[in-house]
């Protein structure tokens, strides 16, 4: 059951042991594959529906002799805004990621390296934001953004998320692991704090920056509640709002709906495969936020 099962039981002959081990390996792969299939079932179901052509009564499995891949092309023609939604999501997610990296690095640098009065107070001001759930801020934020005339705009989707207490906390913890002597030596050599941050501290902190970047990008790409409030006109939708609106539109064409959902999932799935380690680190640390 747990981690040490592939050892052959003692007292067996050499050959039966090898056959036994082989059978055990086959059995293990069979179990793992079955479970993997169950985990992936909803995704396979989505793919199956996407490949069945514009039918109103889809079946669970597609007709494998004539798979209809055209839905992935067709969906861009049927919903001309899809490209725009993808662009919107990329612009917003990249801008928020970059913004959080900058604001978090600056604040974390001050907290981790500089000595100044009332530092503890500032630390807890930043940390305190983790205790405030977005539900408790969203109504005044919505009213403020509306008053600014920022509905249906990139600034409305981006600016409220440019700083994060979590990002500051994560980077501060990492910066603290880098010896302070390095800073003092650099200052003695006439290096200013800004240059130390840019040319020494940040290059040394690449793992933490990557973690924050991957985590923030994923979260922003997948945002739902805020864009739902801020976006009125179809061309300002982000992908998440787009695919759900696609769903509630009058003509439900399953293959196109599933094709658009799969297309929209691709960037984050690719991010998972490429940056799994960073993502996992960010998510487990980010869970602090709740």
């Amino acid at each position: 059951m747990s981690s040490l099962d592939t050892h052959a039981p003692p007292g067996m002959g050499q050959r039966p042991a090898r056959i036994g081990a082989l059978l055990q390996t086959v059995a293990l792969y069979a179990v793992l594959s079955l479970v993997a299939l169950l985990v992936l079932l909803p995704l396979l179901f989505a793919l199956s529906l996407a490949l069945q052509g514009p039918t109103l009564s889809p079946t669970l499995l597609p007709d494998f002799s004539r798979l209809d891949w055209s839905s992935f092309r067709e969906v861009f023609r049927e919903e001309p805004n899809l490209t725009r939604w993808i662009v919107n999501s990329f612009v917003v997610a990249l801008a928020v990621t970059l913004g959080q990296l900058v604001t978090s690095a600056l604040a974390a640098f001050a907290l981790a390296t500089m000595s100044f009065p009332a530092k503890v107070v500032f630390f807890f001001v930043f940390l305190g934001t983790l205790m405030i759930p977005w539900e408790s801020t969203i109504i005044p934020n919505y009213l403020a953004i509306t008053r600014l005339g920022w509905k249906d705009s990139y600034q409305g989707l981006i600016v409220p998320f440019l700083a994060s207490g979590f990002g500051i906390f994560l980077l501060r913890q990492y910066f603290l692991t880098i010896p302070r002597d390095l800073y003092e030596a650099a200052v003695l050599d006439g290096c200013g704090p800004a240059r130390y941050l840019w040319s020494i501290l940040l290059p040394l902190s690449r793992p933490a920056l990557a973690t924050l970047a991957v985590y923030t990008f994923l979260n922003t790409w997948n945002q739902y509640y805020w864009p739902l409030l801020i976006v009125d006109s179809p061309e300002w939708r982000t992908t998440q709002i787009g695919i759900t609106a696609f769903r509630s539109s009058e003509v439900t064409i399953y293959n196109l709906q599933m094709a658009s959902t799969i297309i929209v999932m691709l960037p984050t799935l690719i991010l998972l495969v490429l940056g799994q380690r960073q993502l996992v680190r960010g998510l487990t640390a980010g869970a602090l936020k709740g």
């Binding site: 985990v39 909803p42 994923l218 997948n222 696609f246 999932m265 991010l271």
Partner: peptide, 13 residues
Amino acid sequence: SSIAISVASASVI
């Protein structure tokens, strides 16, 4: 894999 799938996408499926 499901950490890369948004709740919105999962809901549509």
